[in-house]
């Protein structure tokens, strides 16, 4: 039976924890809004990029002399997994979910006899994967000092990837990140970056404008495509990072919300216990006094 003083101390410490989780939840909510706005603002660029690539992709479907970024190197022996995670913990299952998906994929590839290389973006995925897949991690990109993901960050990662690709370090590159669906749900997702999957130019595209105008290309289609593909990779990574940032804040908000609620429940229970034992003690003292008086 804990003494009254112990109970008082515990209540005080849980209250302090609750204050912290509450504050973290509110900070996450504010950051989430900002991250969502950033993701929203980046959408037009990505959409237009998709549209143009879809149009260009129609010309290049025979794969003749097309860029290896588009058709691949012709083999799929070496896979590079780019795993984007958060820099900080305390965000529920966010990092764990991404790491789990990446681990599954890595195991699958390894059992198929492929070589797996891992590039971590963000500290947490590396921490989680270091134990069992540590030997596959080739590099790590730190975004800890980055407050708001900017295109430059994505660009850096993209040029790193392109360097590795040109050096023949890998054949297929997949990006792992968490897609933001709502504050409550974030879905870990993998997205193949190299060879690039060109967005489908669905039927809706044609229907909207009737017979499509014939575009003039300057320089020609191939050259534009070679210029656009690296840019597209950066754009995809950027989109992934933004979604990831929003997901992280969403996950943290939910996690901190339930932590605050848990702390509240705990305070209630402890307070009840505290009051009970206080009353029990008073009763005990009274009985002692009364029986002492009776004995006289």
């Amino acid at each position: 039976m804990p003494s009254l003083k112990d109970l008082r101390n515990r209540i005080a410490s849980v209250t302090a924890t609750q204050k912290i989780t509450k504050a973290m939840q509110m900070v996450a909510a504010a950051k989430l809004r900002r991250a969502q706005e950033a993701a929203e603002a980046a959408r037009p660029y990505a959409e237009r990029m998709d549209k143009v690539l879809a149009r260009l992709g129609r010309w290049i479907d025979d794969g003749q002399g097309a860029s290896p970024l588009l058709v691949g190197t012709g083999s799929d022996k070496t896979h590079l997994l780019v795993i984007a995670s958060a820099e900080r913990g305390l965000c529920g299952g966010f990092n764990g979910n991404i790491a789990r998906l990446a681990r599954q994929q890595a195991r699958k590839l390894l059992s198929e006899g492929k070589t797996v290389k891992i590039l971590c973006v963000g500290r947490k995925a590396r921490d989680v994967l270091r134990r069992d897949l540590g030997s596959h991690i080739i590099d790590h990109i730190d975004l800890r000092g980055v407050r708001q993901v900017a295109f430059v960050n994505a660009d850096e990662i993209a040029s790193r990837l392109l360097e590795l690709f040109e050096a023949g370090e890998f054949d297929v590159c997949t990006l792992f990140f968490s897609r933001f669906q709502s504050v409550l749900t974030q879905e870990p997702t993998m997205l193949q970056l190299i060879p690039a999957r060109l967005p489908e130019s669905g039927g809706g595209d044609n229907a909207e404008s009737g017979p499509r105008a014939v575009y003039e290309y300057e320089p020609d289609e191939d050259e534009i495509l070679t210029e656009l593909l690296p840019l597209n990779i950066a754009t995809q990574i950027f989109r992934g990072l933004l979604e990831n940032a929003a997901s992280e804040q969403g996950a943290r908000m939910t996690a901190m919300d339930s932590a605050t609620r848990n702390a509240g429940d705990m305070i209630d229970k402890l307070t009840l216990l505290y009051n009970r034992s206080r009353q029990a003690q008073i009763t005990k003292e009274l009985i002692e006094i009364v029986s002492g008086a009776e004995a006289l």
Binding site: A41, A42, P44, Y45, F151, A154, E218, P219, A234, T235
Partner: peptide, 24 residues
């Protein structure tokens, strides 16, 4: 005329003409 950078939509308005620095 729309000018879009990866971070956001910078300009979206009516214009009379734009001189574009094309690579050619």
């Amino acid at each position: 005329f729309e000018l879009v950078s990866p971070e956001r939509l910078l300009i979206s308005e009516d214009v009379e003409s734009v001189v574009v620095p094309g690579s050619e």
